[in-house]
Design a protein around this nucleic acid. Structure first.
Lengths: 356, 356
DNA sequence: TTGAAAGCGCTAACAC
DNA sequence: GTGTTAGCGCTTTCAA
């Protein structure tokens, strides 16, 4: 015996014959055309109800040239940030009667382009692309070359062909600088990933500019790993080792991205340093766990909902034929100063205690 | 001037006329049929190359009745677990030439059913459903009623209509029990969410059975919140307050799900308790951050890759016509005992120190 | 107010 | 070996 056999679904013709009208009329009724005789419309509704009929959206799109599908390409799905982003985008697409098809580029530009090509094959109406690196990658070039409609988000600054939406990293980083300087930090280490060039640069520059403005002789060290997280671990290790030899050590670390914050914490662990007594820490990107640890980790919160909402707004404006030069949008972040930040010089386990 | 106008993509007919053959021949060449004259095949390849032609997968599926699309429905996208799951499933689907379309049910059974109906409208070849609650929800019923092909994962035990794949929660929980009992814990609190009935029950029973087997008079308290995380916070608060009045307190907490671990940590914070000196903690579900905090949090690691791989295997077996009664598969977990677990009675900040 | 006809881009039968 | 024909399920002229 065949197990769970998929029965043929009723088509528009089944509805038509049951209602005693043509398929064209059914289509009109379902599309809300008002020129249909009420009596016939009712018969159609009855038939639809009885048969449990539902339009096949793909067949429908087939005829209409533009498909009601939005493609979303994210660097990864594993983090809270992109998880929330996909979730938001999905809801926003649905609200407009579109389906979101999400794909992960797995932090690879090569794959990003492949995935984008697939989206193009699917003839999606538009694409929300969060590039692996920045707006100058091969994927954006592909979109341009193929006349695709799209919006670039997150790791982008501005583009001459596509609208962009991202967090205002520079402003947030300036605020972090103000906070750290205000607490008395004069030697700060900034760590980041060079791959995410667009935003890392903005964050670094925003931080440095404000810090130097407030205290011209502040010392800012920078440790950047080109494209992988693991090397950063080694670089950071070396950095602290060398500093130890010279008897110097930064009093605060600002990590420009989430994994960097984890790497920093893990390096602190290894050395037995505690926040904020031995060293202060602020990370770009918030996560749920950061509030429940000892100490709670200070973080820059990206406005995921706002970015998603803006992205969809501008994307649909383009889909609906909106014209004009592309705009670069920046959404403000929130900076949450939590217990991982204290004042330097208070010495191990002495001041700013957080263990009541 | 119209900005970025999408040019019409070349169709199979464009390729056909350029190669001087019929559309059917092009289709055959591209499908790898070997009966085509090599010379013509070459002309087709040349034309494809020249025009940058790519098959429209949706149009192709339209004709072939079964669409090469797999639907994946997850309770949420925000957590590491489901993020990894979607990522894995996406890769596995691609390997077989299918596209994964993922949707979030947002922990709502009502939405889960709607999303599933949409998948059905899309006529997906199969569905990987991670139900909000368990295998008896309305979504599984819908799948059954509509003869859909699918596999149930994660929050499921066994089903009479669909294959299921999940982590072996009971075995892992038994191991947690063995570890805690071994360390000398005799009063343990277990917290969970009633909504995830299927697995919570398995985890609870597995834990309790083993603990009682090892130490018949062990005390196991249970705090379950019906369906929301927030009430759990309040319940936990009350539980500890009441215990304090009587001067008793569990020496270890086992959280049956990730958010519960966060709630527990946050409650410990509020009371100024530290792990493992004041209380031990083990959580079901691991996360990257758990290794870099002080202390590192002990956790049960679910075998995401294995679950995804098994799910896709059994799903495609069904899609390819595989018959026979549904099977319930359990994949073994790993239990990582980290510093958040110590021995009871060593008193605050006295033993099992983790601050070298 | 309605339905017949013509496809969207593709593939599977079936002739030739 | 290859092309013709006939659709998949739907929408949209356009003529009646």
């Amino acid at each position: 015996m065949a197990h769970r056999q998929a029965q043929r679904r009723s088509s528009i013709h089944d509805v038509a014959s049951r209602a005693g009208v043509s398929a064209a009329t059914v289509s009109k009724v379902l599309a809300g055309v008002t020129t249909v005789k009420p009596e016939n419309a009712q018969r159609v509704f009855d038939a639809v109800e009885h048969l449990g009929y539902r339009v096949d959206p793909l067949a429908s799109d087939m005829r209409r040239a533009k498909r009601r599908i939005i493609g979303a390409i994210m660097p990864e799905f594993e983090s809270e940030f992109f998880g929330q982003m996909v979730s938001e985008l999905e809801g926003l697409a649905e609200q407009r009667g579109y389906t979101l098809v999400a794909a992960s580029s797995r932090e690879s530009e090569a794959r990003e382009k492949e995935v984008l090509a697939r989206m193009h094959d699917w003839r999606v109406a538009g694409v929300v692309l969060a590039p692996v690196r920045n707006e100058h990658g091969p994927a954006a070039g592909f979109m341009k070359a193929n006349g695709m409609t799209g919006v670039l988000i997150d790791r982008v600054l501005a583009d001459d062909a596509f609208d962009t939406v991202s967090a205002d990293s520079a402003a947030a980083s300036a605020e972090v600088a103000r906070e750290l300087i205000g607490k008395g930090h004069r030697h700060i280490l900034v760590i980041g990933l060079g791959q995410q060039a667009a935003t890392v640069r903005a964050r670094l520059d925003g931080f440095r500019a404000k810090a130097l403005e407030l205290v011209p002789d502040v010392r800012i060290d920078v440790v950047l790993s080109e494209s992988e997280v693991e090397p950063l671990r080694a670089l950071l290790h070396d950095y602290f080792d060398k500093g130890a030899k010279r008897g110097e050590r930064p009093t605060a670390v600002y990590s420009l991205f989430l994994k960097g914050t984890l790497v920093a914490l893990s390096e602190f662990r290894r050395r037995g340093w505690h926040c904020p007594d031995d060293i202060s820490l602020v990370g770009f990107d918030d996560a749920e766990w950061m509030q429940v640890t000892w100490p709670a980790i200070a973080a820059v919160v990206q406005p995921v909902r706002q970015i998603a909402a803006q992205a969809m707004d501008v994307l649909f404006a383009r889909i609906d034929g909106g014209d004009g030069p592309p705009k670069a949008r920046l959404e403000p972040c929130k900076v949450l100063m939590r217990e991982s930040v204290g004042s330097p010089g208070s010495g191990p386990h002495s001041g700013g205690g957080n263990r009541q």
